[in-house]
Amino acid sequence: MESLVTTVLIVGGLGALLALLLFLVAKKFYVEEDPRIDEVEKMLPGANCGGCGFAGCRAMSEALVSKDDISALFCPVGGDECMKKVAGYLGKAAPEKEPMVAVVRCAGSCDNRPRNNRFDGAKSCLVASSLYAGETGCPFGCIGLGDCAVKCEFGALSINPVTGLPEVDDEKCTACGACVKACPKGIIELRKKAKRGLKIYVSCVNKDKGAVARKACKVACIGCGKCAKVCPHDAIVVENNLAYIDYSKCKMCRKCVVECPTGAIVECGFPPRKVAENDANSSNKVAE
């Protein structure tokens, strides 16, 4: 009985002592923090992807709470809805941004772009690109070692084993921009996410002269400018032998797609064209 009492006293006393210690330490080292930061952090997706430009969701919440004007801050993962919620809670004006999606601007698959040497270093686009121009005649195009896929926190990017090119899963893509930063060639771009996943873009970043570009890759943009001429909305500029479609002006009329002699302009998500047109287009692509 006596030992029981001793045990209870010792254990109980020890517990009380430690509790007191914990209490005192917590009190002494208490950091005054705006409780709203916690709340805002809960509203953010918690992916810690860094897509907003901050180290993580916590840092972003601190910025959202501390800054009066949050129009420059945006969480690409949570999107408009999330930002509205946060802005509403904080009583600030919500920044508005259109939903975006990552687009890989290279169609240099193994068929389109013959390999003329073989890279045998660490499996990293960064290593390969810092070493030399690349496996193909096109020094601008995708290296295909998948740095973008590795960096994607959301599993939205994967290298297609047949084409050797990365593919974006629009559903999973949050437009955090990690792949854009990871790509040493600057091929990936964030473009406006149109309804029904419609996309029209120049799937090439080759700035070589037409003949050189074409020799290196069947589907290269040769900078001929036909697309720019045909575009009724002035959305296409050709600079350094390369066409670029400004997504804020593009009305998705698809005139440029038909006009492009190399098939470098890609359309996605559209219903099939009328048979005649479709045939002409596809036979055109096969022949090239």
Binding site: G121, A122, S124, L126, V127, S130
Partner: peptide, 12 residues
């Protein structure tokens, strides 16, 4: 392991 391949990148 391609140690230097990576170290070179890190160093740069």
């Amino acid at each position: 392991l391609p140690l230097l391949d990576w170290v070179r990148i890190g160093k740069a």
